[in-house]
Design a protein around this nucleic acid. Structure first.
Lengths: 193, 193
DNA sequence: CATCAAGCGGATGACCCATCCGTTTATCCT
DNA sequence: AGGATAAACGGATGGGTCATCCGCTTGATG
């Protein structure tokens, strides 16, 4: 990942951009290792001054959101692709499955996705985009009679997070994907008409 | 709550027991307020020296487990009562509902209940007791044909925690109980044969 | 009442966080 | 090219929290 031009017309000095990259990359590594993001530690691991990290990312949340962004955008793209599918039922369940897999695959995503609000505009934007997609696909599936009425998109979002959370209670991480898929099946049985 | 005699034959000096009570009571208040338990803060709020708190509860987890214990034991008692019910299906679902309500009602319970291990023997014991009850009631319900086979008690436990977690994503706390009940209904539709 | 161990509390060293500021460096302009 | 300038750097440091240690107090015991 490489630093994006801000608002499309502003750029960072070359050394700043390089540091930005190193910080995000290091943060990604730490997140993947399961370490909670401590900005001082990120600075040390990235061989960069502490102030540099704080200048780019005032809080751990800001860095985490930056790290999570690509994954969230991939998921949103996946959702937009689902709009073109023929069967509203499979389009909807397909997005749920993709969401679960994304949440499981990238430890940066769950905390960002389930946070009540976001510090970066781009994160807020992509999460809102996902919510819109979710609403749209759910509505379609409900109209097609594939999903029972009386459920909101917010319910779906929460339940997906709940399923992923449930799977994290399994100590063996390798077993989690299979678990989430079983739990999603269970949920879908309840969701269908 | 009042300090239990340790192993049934050892007792604390009277002032120590009084402090113990005050610490647990203060901790309970803080937990109910949603404050994360910080031992220094508990000491200040309980008008007690820091060392006194640390002597009784070496870690925040130890205090939290102590605070959660009564609720967990009430739930276990509820589960033992469920054993005497006639219909295995309602006995099982009744315990699930009771579990959810307990997790929602007492903020001390979820972190203790879903922790992979426990620092106090009594906590470990009561959680194990609950697991046993869960296994037993699930097995009965499955044999009676009320619940589909292929699910373990651990699955159930995780799913219950997942549902409660899902409800905590709703910002309005007053709406959460209704949510969890709806989600449990959904889950039960999936669980039935 | 005297003895003494159990218990008390707060001072303190260790550690983490995040800001500030003197120095360095990229960029721009002549 | 090279100097001027602002952007960016980095680490020293003050502020805050954590948990231990130890000299003092107090309840229990005979």
């Amino acid at each position: 990942m490489t630093h994006p031009f801000i608002l499309g017309h502003m750029s960072l000095r070359r050394d700043a951009a390089r540091n930005w990259d190193q910080i995000v990359e290091t943060g990604r590594r730490l997140v993947d290792e399961g370490t909670p993001l401590r900005l001082n530690e990120v600075a040390r691991a990235a061989a960069v001054g502490v102030a540099t990290v704080y200048r780019h990312f005032p809080t751990p949340e800001a860095l985490l959101e930056t790290i999570a962004l690509p994954g969230l955008e991939a998921l949103a793209a996946r959702g937009e692709h689902a709009l073109t599918e023929d069967d509203p039922g499979t389009a909807f369940t397909g997005l749920l499955l993709a969401g679960i897999d994304a949440l499981l695959a990238d430890p940066a995503i769950p905390p960002v996705f389930s946070a009540p609000d976001h510090v970066l505009p781009r994160t807020a934007e992509v999460v809102a985009r996902l919510a819109g997609l979710n609403t749209l696909l759910l509505d379609r599936a409900q109209r097609a009679g594939a999903i029972r009425p009386g459920l909101t998109a917010a319910d779906i979002t929460r339940l997906i997070c709940g399923i992923v959370y449930a799977a994290t209670l399994e100590p063996d991480a390798a077993a989690r994907p299979a678990l989430t898929h079983r739990y999603l099946d269970l949920l879908l049985t309840g969701l269908r008409t």
